[in-house]
Design a protein around this nucleic acid. Structure first.
Length: 551
RNA sequence: UGGGGAGUAGCCAAGUGGUAAGGCAACGGACUUUGACUCCGUCACUCGCAGGUUCGAUCCCUGCCUCCCCAGCCA
């Protein structure tokens, strides 16, 4: 795939931007990524981040990282830090770091302006009363009895709301628009609510906080954002967005455009649900390698490049869709293919004794680190009389077309020799515990031996130099097709989302200067940043290799 | 029964009044010291459905169908 071409994949938002530039409607493009710091970023956010940053980048524009921190009861500094780390890790640099809370004073002034223009009023209705008067989808709403308060009274009340005179929930500031609008968002929406909560940045300075519908357009306008990109559910808020910009007399005129959020098969993509998994201890944190969070993907071994390529390739459109998770996997494999050292690990060891190999002797064999990328060099691996192979690579009575090891069969040991299975050793229970094989010195790797061919090539680890390691085999945390699970998230948990096995890796992997490896015939693995130790390295399965093999 | 959106292959997704890009998946075959990779090939006579306009419609018009979103003092 041509990355340059992919970077300029056509999509409707890009077309709008290009057109705005061509017609002179805007001179320079400014976008923004506006997360609320109430959770960690996930792969769905990555789609938005890539869209905003890459689009601006393409046309020489700017992108701000702006925290939409207008609800202190849900937000936290921890998330502010994590979000910045994730955006940076993805490879983006924002032009300005902004906080909606930095604009609270200006927002307040704009609200006062609305009151002065007779376009906003303080309303004492209870939430229940307000809901009742709002009407329904098919019936118009009715005006609040407080709608006719005088401008002076509204100004006074709003100021007193600010000063903390009233308890939470007792009053709100509402826009005066149209209670009969077929668009419910225009039925006198709430602009400010009272919240005696400590804000992570402004502390106890404010007792009133602006609502999204009021704050967001102002934030965009204040920053000079030209293209405010958000998701589909905000589509019918756009008239209100425009109303706020217009009536608050903002000099700058941002436009809102909506696209479909990312959905992935076997993945939950809502902060609320991800938070639930964290809080109920289903996972070991937001960065659990099974989580679709940026930090989880990072810990699992995904690369920023892979995520960016994925984001470009899935496109940007307005129809609700569910992307096959195979696509995401494809892009990590693609990225790691040339980067990762291709080494050997045995996940479920079976001992093999090479009976004709001299006892007490060993030799060092040369192995290239990545056959497709010579720049990655080569290493020496030990070989001796006892090695481990994969339990799955032996069957006592195999089906047809099984070309791994079985009694009498000969296979190649990657980077080493051909071996033939001569004898099977079992324990009292009849389980195979050891294989006794012979090797043929003439078949040594690299000698160009062509005397005969074998169908199978196995990976292995020398027993005397093997390093014990733990492997965490990851599968989807949440399954799509669970009968009768309904909306019960926990009912959709995959019982096999993580299988932990212990086996061996080649010695010396820790000094390879990388935390990502391909383990031959298994897949790509990454050192777990939290669990690994010098005594027992721990690897997470980033993604398995494709395989057409089936028994 | 209100308003706002969307329907192009199994999944994403371009596209335009001139005869359906690309990617993922899948399936054949070649190659192979990874049952991987790579390579070659296959995969929409048709763009939700029905009419209409036109020399010609996925694109324009009309009607219909299906799906998604909206009744937080969340974002």
């Amino acid at each position: 795939m041509n990355l340059e071409a992919a970077a300029t994949n056509s999509n409707f938002i890009r077309n709008i931007v290009l057109d705005d530039l061509a017609t002179g409607k805007v001179r320079a493009v400014v976008t923004r990524f506006p997360p609320e710091p109430n959770g960690y970023l996930h792969i769905g956010h990555a789609k938005s981040i890539c869209l905003n940053f890459e689009l601006a980048q393409e046309v020489g524009g700017q992108t701000n990282l702006r925290f939409d921190d207008t609800n202190p009861s849900k937000e936290d500094e921890e998330f502010v830090k994590a979000i910045q780390e994730d955006v940076t890790w993805l490879g983006f640099t924002w032009n300005q770091l902004c906080f909606a809370s930095d604009y609270f004073e200006e927002m307040y002034e704009r609200a006062v302006l609305l009151i002065q223009k007779g376009l906003a009023y303080v309303c004492d209705l209870t939430p229940e009363e307000m809901r009742t008067l709002r009407g329904t989808l098919t019936t118009p709403g009715q005006e609040s009895p407080y709608r006719r308060r005088t401008m002076e009274e509204n100004l006074d009340l709003f100021q007193r709301m600010r000063s903390g005179e009233f308890p939470d929930g007792s009053k709100v500031l509402r826009a005066k628009i149209d209670m009969t609008s077929p668009n419910i968002n225009l039925r006198d929406p709430v602009l400010y609510r009272i919240a005696h909560a400590t804000h992570h940045r402004t502390g106890d300075l404010w007792r009133i906080y602006p609502m999204y519908d009021f704050a967001h357009p102002l934030e965009d306008a204040i920053e000079g954002v030209t293209h405010s990109i958000c998701t589909l559910e905000f589509e019918d808020h756009r008239p209100l967005y425009d109303w706020v910009i217009e009536q608050c007399e903002m000099p700058s005129r941002p436009r809102q455009y909506e696209f479909a959020r990312l959905n992935l098969t076997n993945t939950v993509m809502s902060k609320r649900k991800l938070k639930q998994l964290v809080e109920e201890g289903v996972v070991d944190g937001w960065d659990d390698p099974r989580m679709p969070t940026i930090s989880g993907l990072r810990r699992r071994g995904y690369t920023p490049e892979a995520i960016r390529s994925f984001a470009r390739e899935i496109g940007v459109a307005k129809s609700n869709s569910v992307v096959d998770a195979h696509m995401l996997e494809y892009f990590v494999r693609e990225d790691l293919k040339m980067k990762a050292l291709r080494t050997m690990a045995v996940l479920r060891p079976l001992k093999v004794v090479i009976t004709n190999y001299p006892e007490g002797e060993s030799e060092w064999l040369e192995a290239e680190n990545n056959a497709e990328n010579p720049a990655l060099g080569a290493r020496l691996i030990p070989f001796s009389r006892e090695i481990y192979i994969e339990q799955d690579d032996f069957m006592e009575s195999p089906p047809p077309k099984y070309f791994r090891l079985f009694p009498g069969n000969e296979v190649r040991l990657k980077h080493a020799y051909f071996i033939r299975c001569e004898e099977v050793v079992k324990d009292a229970a009849g389980r195979v515990v050891e294989l006794r094989c012979t090797y043929d010195p003439e078949t040594k790797s690299g000698t160009g031996f062509a005397g005969r061919k074998v169908k199978g090539t196995l990976h292995w680890v020398d027993a005397s130099h093997a390093k014990a390691a733990q492997f965490r085999l990851i599968e989807p945390l949440i399954l799509d097709d669970v009968d009768e699970a309904g909306d019960d998230l926990l009912g959709r948990l995959n019982p096999r989302s993580m299988e932990v096995v212990e086996g061996y890796v080649e010695e010396g992997l820790e000094i390879a200067g990388s935390d990502k490896f391909q383990f031959f015939r298994h897949g790509y693995f990454s050192v777990d940043s939290r669990l690994t130790s010098p005594e027992l390295p721990v690897f997470n399965l980033t993604v398995s290799l494709k395989s057409s093999f089936q028994l």
